[in-house]
């Protein structure tokens, strides 16, 4: 069960849970959990509401190795409350990012799967996400690369969508979705004519992995296989660190301004793909990953 790109093959990232992803992403047996489930640091707020808690509050954090290199890793459990961030969940992630500054691992890997703020403890969750953002950027400022991985059932939305784009680099599968307001939130608030959340093709071409890659919002698109995420994470580790300098942010500013100028009036992702000069944009969602990457290889990938 090994190949050149990693030790494991054929484990779907999309279907795995938070712990399974860590097991297959890191070197075998290297993971050491911090504040694991036996500590029973559960949410006091869910308890008050009479809702079931999780022993790890929906996030697994710890030390591990990837190809021998020491990393810190966090993995959100989408199955528990959609991976939403509450007080304890958020503090575990903030603490991990602060630990990175002390320990200087080769990278922090964030396996993001979250709807954002946990509404059952909304105020604490919102502040917690802001604390995650500050701790993440402090880790980056200290020269620690932070790499985000996205590809679970619940996608990466809300405040965690902002957290994701604060990372140095993002890896996504086709099933992965990344945005701010989830399609169902937009539909519920603004009406079905604004965004039909039941239209799966529309949802995926608007917030899915392929469009995010073409837009430059993520740097790598991989097969739905944990081994593929592992290989992409190792490749990312070889890249120079993206700094938070004035020059780097001015370059990002120009790219985002150009995107708004070029595509600001587009109504659909296919219009953007067409303007990018891609042939047959309607076919792109149907291509497998290898064919898709081949068909779109002429598009400059921002920050990749």
């Amino acid at each position: 069960m090994s190949d050149l790109s990693g030790r494991h093959r054929g484990h779907s990232y999309y279907e795995a849970n938070a712990r399974g992803r860590i097991t297959h992403l890191l070197d075998a047996g290297s993971f050491r959990e911090i504040l694991g489930p036996t500590e029973r640091l559960t949410s006091p707020h869910l308890e008050l509401l009479g809702l079931p808690c999780a022993f790890d509050d929906g996030i697994v954090v710890g030390h591990g190795r990837i190809d021998g290199r020491q990393v810190l890793i966090a993995s959100q459990e989408g199955g528990f409350m959609g991976g939403a961030v509450g007080e304890v969940h958020g503090a575990k992630l903030t603490g991990l990012l602060e630990l990175a500054v002390q320990e200087r691992p080769a990278a922090v890997l964030l396996l993001l799967e979250s709807g954002g703020v946990r509404l059952h403890e909304a105020n604490a969750g919102l502040i917690a996400i802001s604390e995650i953002i500050r701790a993440l950027l402090a880790a980056r400022a200290a020269g620690i690369p932070v790499i985000g991985l996205i590809g679970g059932v619940y996608g990466c939305f809300g405040g965690m969508g902002i957290v994701a784009r604060c990372c140095d680099s993002l890896i996504i599968n086709e099933e992965g979705r990344l945005g701010l307001s989830g399609p169902d939130v937009i539909e519920t608030t603004m009406g079905v004519e604004e965004f039909d959340a039941a239209d799966r093709a529309l949802v995926w071409r608007t917030v899915g992995g392929k469009h995010r890659l073409l837009l430059g919002e993520v740097q790598r698109l991989v097969e739905d296989d944990i081994a593929a995420f592992r290989s992409a994470a190792l490749e990312t580790l070889e890249q120079p660190i993206q700094d938070l300098s004035l020059e780097a942010l001015e370059a990002e500013h120009q790219a985002l301004s150009a995107r708004l100028t070029d595509y600001g009036s587009c109504q659909d992702a296919t219009e953007i793909w067409s303007q990018l000069g891609l042939h047959d944009p309607l076919q792109l969602p149907l291509l497998d990953i290898q064919s898709f990457l081949k068909a779109t290889c002429k598009i400059g990938r921002e920050g990749a």
Binding site: G36, C53, F80
Partner: peptide
């Protein structure tokens, strides 16, 4: 092991921890 955890707390599902 000292402990083991399986499953996820979601609708129709559960987590079981053994120590």
């Amino acid at each position: 092991r000292a402990s083991a955890l399986v499953g996820v707390v979601s609708s129709g599902n559960l987590e079981v921890m053994v120590e």
